[in-house]
């Protein structure tokens, strides 16, 4: 019986690795069950880090799994041949397997600091080295995203700001800075394809930034529980070519000027 149980534990690393490999390779049973396509210039670094940690932990996962199996197989009471090793441990081994993981973990910690900084701490600057002004302010509210574009003067909170709901248009191949905030409860501004997630907190303004490199329509997800309608708080991210974006902005401005609703929401 013991051998059967050992084999059961052997299936853990085998199936575990198999599932991840199946998910990673395009096509097959798990097609598209992997990181969604990345369209952010800054996002690749996160994917790389993810894969790096995956390989690293994968090696440890396989290693410990095989060891566990091997020990169970070999020292099964029904079939074992060697006498029991009466030992209380080994100082050398303890030191080795303390220092090695410690060094690895510290390495990961330091290695990723740049990525963290570029995502959360160093907002993009313009040609003069000043912080790049925000293109749009995104306000989460139960259960929609309200957007406020800077308009013609490129400055937020002025008279020509343009207001839309849920449809976030951004130009491609351009550094985009977005101010995110909330009007009522916590939400989370999650662009899966941009590898961007930022909880938005009422009363607190925060910035996110990215540079899209692929036009198309993507999802804007709310990733922080915000009430019963959390699931339906869906926005759409449109990455447009520069021309399309300008055209859309102009159109949005015209629509706004021609309706009374817009001026009311401006207040």
């Amino acid at each position: 019986m013991g051998r059967l149980w050992s084999l059961l534990f052997l299936t853990v690393p085998i199936l575990g690795v198999a599932i991840f490999v199946l998910a990673m390779i395009p096509g097959g049973v798990f097609d598209d069950h992997w990181l969604p396509v990345n369209i952010n210039e800054h996002g690749q670094i996160i994917d790389d880090l993810f894969m790096f940690i995956l390989y690293l932990t994968g090696v440890i996962f396989i290693g410990t799994g095989i060891l566990l199996f091997w020990f169970l197989w070999k020292y099964d009471t029904e079939t074992r041949t060697e006498p029991v090793k009466y030992t209380h441990g080994s100082h050398t081994l303890e030191i080795i397997w303390s220092i090695l993981p410690a060094a690895t973990l510290l390495f990961i910690a330091i290695y990723q600091m740049d990525a963290w900084a570029s995502h959360k701490m160093v907002p993009p600057v313009d040609d003069h080295g000043d912080p790049k002004p925000a293109l749009v302010e995104v306000t989460g509210r139960q259960f929609e995203w309200r957007l406020r574009y800077a308009g013609r003067d490129g400055e937020l909170y002025t008279k020509d700001d343009i207001f839309t709901v849920n449809d976030l248009h951004v130009p491609v191949n351009e550094q985009v800075v977005i101010v995110v905030k909330s009007q009522d409860v916590l939400h989370s501004f999650f662009l899966p394809n941009m590898r961007i997630k930022q909880d938005v907190i009422p009363g607190m303004k925060q910035k996110v930034w990215f540079q899209a490199n692929q036009v198309g329509q993507y999802d804007l997800v709310c990733a922080e529980l915000c009430g019963w309608g959390h699931y339906k708080m869906r926005g759409r991210l449109w990455v447009d070519s520069a021309d399309d974006f300008a055209k859309w902005l102009e159109q949005a401005e015209q629509e706004q000027n021609s309706t009374e609703i817009a001026s009311a929401s401006q207040e």
């Binding site: 534990f9 853990v12 575990g16 990181l35 670094i45 996160i46 880090l49 993810f50 940690i53 995956l54 690293l56 932990t57 440890i60 996962f61 410990t64 799994g65 566990l68 973990l105 990961i108 910690a109 990723q112 990525a115 963290w116 995502h119 959360k120 989370s188 999650f190 899966p192 590898r195 961007i196 997630k197 990733a223 922080e224």
Partner: peptide, 24 residues
Amino acid sequence: SMFVIGGLSGIFMAATPVDIFIHD
């Protein structure tokens, strides 16, 4: 056997940039 999986997947979350994507 299972704690190894749970422990190792924790490293993904501990890595702040990766956590940006997989948080929640």
